[in-house]
């Protein structure tokens, strides 16, 4: 991990109006390397699942942002709340165009939480779904980024979108109040 990578990641956060993240997560020289480690673990998870090498380095994300800036913005927001590389891969797959086929969530107060998201390519059969599972309640925040709609009265989750409530209008004080 290079000094340059952390600088690129910090720049990405600022460009995407997430500079308040730099305030609430503490000194950037501490948490940015952790985030980069998370991104590397997501790349490893992606490779383990699909046998394809995919880079999630800040440099790669910055390059991708020139093509689809809104997707990188949404992904950066996901890094803030996702508990694991598995969930980050799930988010990335949705950004790649996979459909959200099934979501199940079970929760018992102060006892248990489980979230399962199943994705598939548009043309895929029911038995070709990818499964992403979490037992960390923080991952429930990811659902807030899913688009929702109705097709002929039936429910649809679609896409992973950035949340504008996260913009710079959220002051660092407000953000800090909501931080653990």
């Amino acid at each position: 991990m290079s000094q340059q990578s952390t600088e690129v990641l910090e720049r990405l956060l600022r460009v995407n109006k997430l500079e308040w993240v730099l305030d609430i997560f503490g000194p950037s020289d501490r948490f940015l390397p952790n985030w980069i480690k998370q991104l590397n673990e997501a790349a490893a998870e992606y490779h383990a699942r699909f046998g394809v090498s995919l880079s999630f380095t800040p440099e790669t994300l910055e390059a991708e942002a020139t093509k689809s800036p809104h997707k990188i913005r949404a992904f950066l927001q996901a890094i803030c709340v996702a508990s694991s590389p598995v969930m980050l891969v799930m988010v990335w797959r949705i950004l790649q165009g996979l459909k959200i086929r099934e979501i199940s969530m079970a929760y018992r107060e102060r006892d248990s939480f489980e979230l399962i998201v199943r994705l598939a390519r548009p043309e895929a059969e029911q038995d070709q779904m990818e499964e992403y599972k979490s037992r960390n309640v923080s991952d429930a925040n990811l659902l807030h980024h899913f688009g929702t709609g109705l097709i002929d009265g039936k429910p649809l989750f679609h896409g992973f979108y950035s949340d504008r409530l996260w913009d710079k209008s959220v002051t660092s004080e407000t953000a800090a109040a909501h931080s653990p």
Partner: peptide, 19 residues
């Protein structure tokens, strides 16, 4: 009028025209 609006529209169209 941002890329996200176009993206969301395309995703909706793909619900009907997956190819």
């Amino acid at each position: 009028g941002d890329p996200e609006a176009l993206d969301a529209s395309v995703r909706m169209i793909l619900e009907y025209w997956p190819q």
